[in-house]
């Protein structure tokens, strides 16, 4: 199994034969219609039906209830935009937004750079290539809970390995769950440990579509390996980069499992919401305080946040490579 992706080499296949004209005969017209007109729709329908039930319907349902004061154990009352104005005025919500954005930046920027370098290294020829390439995917198949348990131990205040090592250099023990920036760093390493390999493999697949003759030509012109990396590999990877960055944006802004498990499954995200993300805030409002309307409104604000974040990143990435 090798990771060859041929997207960059559109093979020039012969033109497909023009569709035969089937003259409908009486009695068989339904079967023909089913075969030619309906079958494609039937074949793609499972995805759209699932999307309707688990995607579109919840989206609309959430929007509808975001205009209500909906207490699970109490009443349902229309409040118009009341939930949204209250949210924009809610310091706890903004604290969650800041936490989410901060952890997103701290986790994603080094992760993508690291994945890029890792992919570049994996793209060379070496022994046991397959095992090493598969190896970087290993963190992805470990359970989030197991990862959280291990990292929570590593970042323990009193008995954690990280503080122990820091102690060699004379540093005071850090309370990783109580201080805001340290908690973000701890969670960011957890995310990076899990997702760097995944992104590296995607980058690797992208790198293998770059024609070799570009590198040969550059070598003949005397370009160094480093220069080749920055001037050929990175610009040619732009489509892959856009996918990886958008994927990380969506994943980063909906971050939930790692910070939740980091605090023993408690969605408050630390005693003072030091690392409560917007997703955890939504969960807390909806399923701990049972304020469904408020949680729905927050979910829609998160949706807007993701749209804006994705748009900004898309525009940024389109500019890399310096051309155009």
């Amino acid at each position: 199994m090798s990771l060859h992706v041929d997207a960059g080499h559109p093979t020039r296949a012969p033109m497909p034969p023009s569709r035969r004209h089937v003259r409908p005969r009486p009695g068989r017209s339904f079967m023909t219609w089913l075969d030619l007109k309906a079958a494609p729709y039937l074949l793609v329908s499972p995805y759209y039906l699932l999307f309707l039930v688990f995607g579109l319907f919840p989206l609309a349902f959430t929007l509808y209830y975001s205009f209500f004061d909906y207490d699970l154990t109490g009443t349902v009352e229309w409040t118009g935009l009341g939930n949204f104005t209250a949210l924009l005025d809610d310091a706890a919500f903004w604290r969650a937004v800041v936490n989410t954005l901060a952890m997103f930046v701290i986790a994603t920027v080094p992760q993508i750079l690291l994945a890029l370098l890792l992919a570049n290294a994996l793209n060379k020829r070496f022994k046991l290539q397959l095992f090493v390439r598969l190896g970087v995917l290993l963190p992805l198949v470990t359970s989030v809970v197991a990862v959280a348990v291990v990292f929570t131990q590593l970042y323990g205040r009193d008995w954690g390995v990280v503080n122990w090592v820091l102690g060699w250099f004379g540093a005071d023990p850090i309370d990783w769950k109580a201080e805001r920036l340290p908690s973000w760093l701890a969670i960011a390493t957890m995310i990076d440990w899990r997702w760097t390999g995944y992104n590296a493999i995607i980058f690797l697949a992208g790198m293998q579509t770059i024609p070799k003759d570009l590198y040969e030509a550059a070598s003949i012109d005397g370009a160094s390996r480093r220069r080749q990396f920055w001037q050929i590999t990175v610009p040619m990877l732009r489509p892959t980069m856009i996918f990886v960055v958008l994927n990380s944006t969506i994943g980063g802004l909906t971050l939930f499992s790692e910070p939740t498990t980091f605090y023993n499954g408690n969605v408050h995200g630390g005693t003072n919401s030091q690392f409560q993300t917007v997703s955890m805030f939504i969960f807390e409002q909806g399923f701990r305080e049972f304020d469904y309307g408020y949680a729905s409104a927050a979910a829609w604000l998160l949706f807007l946040l993701i749209l804006i974040g994705s748009a900004i990143n898309f525009l940024l990435i389109r500019r890399i490579g310096g051309n155009k």
Partner: peptide
């Protein structure tokens, strides 16, 4: 239960120094 939960977070937060 909800109020107790909110209060205990604060009572713990003064101890770990985050409040």
């Amino acid at each position: 239960a909800q109020v107790k939960n909110a209060i205990e977070s604060v009572v713990s937060a003064i101890d770990d120094g985050s409040v």
